[in-house]
């Protein structure tokens, strides 16, 4: 519909080729150890792939209006959720988590059936 028939199999294959190429690129870049840039680059490539899939495979290019509004809104709210949580957590001056290490073999619940049902007993800080 809405000129959907124009999107032939060729287009699907071209987009598919680009997707596979981008996946290979993402894998190759991960071997280079980009340090601080690794996550943004990987997520950027993933975003491009997602946009290609949404646009061509999920017919977003054929559907202006409602669906694009929905996708955009969902994106904004994901950013709000992740962004505000990170903004709050990264501004904590003192850590809210107790320091480790927690020996993995000693974790409560491993010896009994199922996880512990009660809070661990209070220990006096040294």
């Amino acid at each position: 519909m809405r000129g959907g028939a124009r999107h032939g199999g060729v287009q699907v294959l071209v987009v598919g080729g680009v997707l596979l190429g981008l996946a290979a690129l993402s894998f190759g870049l991960s071997r280079l150890h980009l340090g601080a840039w690794a996550v943004p680059v990987a997520l950027g490539i993933a975003l491009v792939k997602a946009a290609l899939i949404a646009g061509f495979y999920m017919h977003l290019t054929e559907r202006p209006g409602g669906p694009r509004l929905v996708v955009g809104t969902a994106g904004v709210f994901v950013v709000i959720l992740v962004g505000l949580v990170l903004a709050e957590a990264s501004a904590r001056i003192w850590p809210t988590l107790p320091p480790g290490p927690f020996p993995v073999t000693r974790l409560p619940g491993k010896d009994v059936e199922g996880p512990p049902r009660v809070a661990p007993p209070w220990r006096q800080p040294p």
């Binding site: 073999t105 974790l107 619940g109 491993k110």
Partner: peptide
């Protein structure tokens, strides 16, 4: 969760 027992990667 509580069953984690991977000795090779035992950091907090």
């Amino acid at each position: 969760g509580a069953w984690y027992a991977y000795e090779a990667f035992a950091v907090p």
